[in-house]
Design a protein around this nucleic acid. Structure first.
Length: 448
DNA sequence: TTGTATT
């Protein structure tokens, strides 16, 4: 039915309103199709905008790729169609590609080949080198078959210690890109101590976390001044701001410069308590439980049934103490923001897998000049105070996994989007100012 | 510098 060496193609940039039967004619002209599958979300069945295509003949795939890849743009798309071997094809080598570690940095490709050639046919052998051309002491070796690779592992792993290496030779199957990404994410999560505020100032991402706190604080205070936040949250905001202003030495850092495009920057010196407390929180939650007049949010910790630390007076003279109190309030504010204040114990917010991409017209924001470290989660975090974020997406370079420093946030209503623009457009982070605007609407004059 | 998505 199909060639033994047929190639499965990945098709990208497909309009979401096209299904298999719409696509078939387009691809059939290059040969008989063996299988064509539009990718759909496993739970929602939503069209993912891409597909897999296998022709009966290998030659057809090659023809389709050269004729179509990047060659034409399907209606409604901004970028040209993608037609290339699926990851599964190129990764087919995964089970025969080895990572070799703990080599001597003097060893060349030829040296490594000599070491590995006894176990099979080597298709590829590469020493990993730094920018200066020096060996990193490791290599990739790809055999023709899995069995050969396995034989090499059995014979060589741990078998000897190269001069100058700190431990014995490492020979293992190479990670896939996915495994590498996962590992990196896990490392990051570990370093940041996810949702552990005390870890923030000391982690590798301290500077970023601090910027995030500054934003949150400024936002909350700014919104509170508009009367949309309850006094408790406003107070927490002021605390957070004080805390964010502390650098790691506990010294007061330079004043931050929150700006909200065009409108008055929130000048926050004292707790910004709105004159008319509103029962409506920014996320539509009704805020913390009723509190006695302006008691610090540390009370919320008690309301949550947990009070791991003695309550700190927010007026404590020691700035570190204030920071500490601020942290508690920060921590306390979060369950509230997720509407879980009534729970006896705090629970992680139920993270519903993101599937929704776009909101209605006028609800989608384009954000540029994001910090390099921002991912989807941080982007969402940043815009959560303005409403229901139904989706956040930071664009990432697929080859390097680096953020492209822009992304999208979608709200479920246009008012939230406008509020977010007002507050966040021009917001300074480090040397950059965010650009926050409505996403350019998809080509209005769609052909039909 | 405008939704990149890999069964």
């Amino acid at each position: 039915m199909k060639d033994h060496d047929a190639i499965k193609l990945f098709i990208g940039q497909i309009p979401r309103n096209l299904d298999e039967k719409d696509l078939k004619p387009l691809f059939e002209e290059f040969g008989k199709i063996y299988e064509l599958t539009v990718l759909k979300d496993r739970f929602t069945g939503m069209h993912k905008g891409c597909a897999f295509l296998t022709y009966c003949e290998r030659e057809s795939a090659l023809k389709a790729q050269s004729a179509l890849h990047e060659q034409k743009t399907l209606p409604g798309m901004n970028r040209p169609i993608q037609v290339k071997p699926a990851d599964s094809e190129s990764r087919g080598g995964k089970d025969r590609k080895l990572f070799v570690g703990m080599l001597n940095k003097q060893q060349s490709e030829d040296d490594v080949r000599r070491l590995f050639e006894a176990f099979g046919n080597i298709e590829e052998c590469t020493i990993l080198r730094g920018p200066d051309g020096n060996s990193k002491g490791c290599a990739f070796v790809k055999y023709s078959s899995h069995a050969e690779a396995q034989a090499a592992i059995n014979a060589l792993h741990g078998s000897q210690t190269m001069p100058g290496a700190s431990s014995s030779l490492v020979v293992k199957f190479a990670d896939t890109d996915k495994e590498r990404t996962m590992r990196r994410m896990q490392q990051m999560a570990g370093q940041m101590g996810m949702f552990n505020p005390m870890a923030i100032p000391f982690g590798a991402y301290g500077a970023y976390a601090q910027a995030l706190m500054q934003q949150q604080a400024a936002l909350m205070a700014s919104v509170a001044q508009g009367g949309y936040l309850n006094p408790m949250a406003a107070f927490a905001a002021a605390q957070m701001q004080q805390m964010a202003a502390l650098n790691m030495n506990g010294l007061a850092a330079a004043p931050m410069t929150p700006t909200s495009g065009g409108s008055t920057p929130p000048g926050i010196t004292a707790p910004a308590v709105p004159s008319i407390p509103s029962p409506i929180g920014v996320n539509g939650f009704t805020g913390l439980p009723p509190q006695a007049n302006g008691q610090p949010a540390a009370e919320a910790v008690f309301a949550n049934g947990i009070h791991p630390y003695p309550a700190q007076s927010p007026t404590a003279a020691d700035p570190l103490q204030q920071a500490y109190a601020g942290v508690q309030q920060y921590a306390a504010a979060y369950p509230a923001a997720y509407g879980q204040i009534s729970q006896a114990f705090p629970q992680p917010p139920p993270m519903i897998p993101q599937q929704q991409r776009e909101g209605p017209e006028g609800c989608n924001l384009f954000i540029y000049h994001l910090p390099q470290e921002f991912g989807d989660a941080e982007l969402m975090q940043m815009f959560l105070p303005f409403g229901n974020v139904i989706s956040s997406k930071v664009f990432v370079d697929r080859a390097t996994n680096q953020s492209k420093c822009f992304g999208f946030v979608s709200f479920d209503n246009p008012a939230s989007a406008q509020t977010a623009i007002q507050a966040m457009n021009g917001f300074q982070i480090g040397m950059k100012r965010l650009k926050v605007q409505l996403k350019r609407p998809k080509d209005a004059n769609r052909p039909y």
